[in-house]
Amino acid sequence: MGSLTEVTNTGDGFMATTIDAVVNWGRKNSLWPMPLGLSCCAIEMMSMVGPRFDLARFGAEAMRFSPRQCDLMIVAGTLTWKMAQAARTIYDQMPEPKWVIAMGVCASSGGMYRNYSVVQGVDLLFPVDMYVPGCPPRPEAVIDAVLKLQKRIERERAWSTGRQRPMPANPRGPILARS
């Protein structure tokens, strides 16, 4: 809590801080992930929450299967266009503020599935904060993404209304390989 300042010279214990610092401190240490486990990466995500890697150390172990209770979407797996509507609906149902981790190369860029059926990166559907490479990424890598995301949350503006990030535009036509 670097931005909290302890004022001790009055003799009474009180602290001066900003709303942003307090709210963001709460948010970053109690992320509730929405596990969008779509394929093999979901297995690593489960082990990340389990006792060996223990995401609970960073306050983000409360996986909820209702998007309305979540603020961190972990897209773990291969997202197909057939599933795109469902994924987008889940994202839309999560209350603001919300963050997204694209776990694995499939979610980040389509990965080895360079074809018509797989979404070539979930950032075609909603804004993504962290991309974790790997097929699948090790649980430590995803934990690292969570920690980096926590650092980023620390610096965000706490109060805002509506959507905080612009939604991706319609690609209109062929999705060429993006480099």
């Binding site: 266009w81 987008r88 074809n115 070539q120 062929p174 999705i175 060429l176 390989a177």
Partner: peptide
């Protein structure tokens, strides 16, 4: 095309 075409309707 190989990488596909995004579904405009969605």
């Amino acid at each position: 095309p190989l990488e596909g075409i995004a579904p405009d309707r969605l």
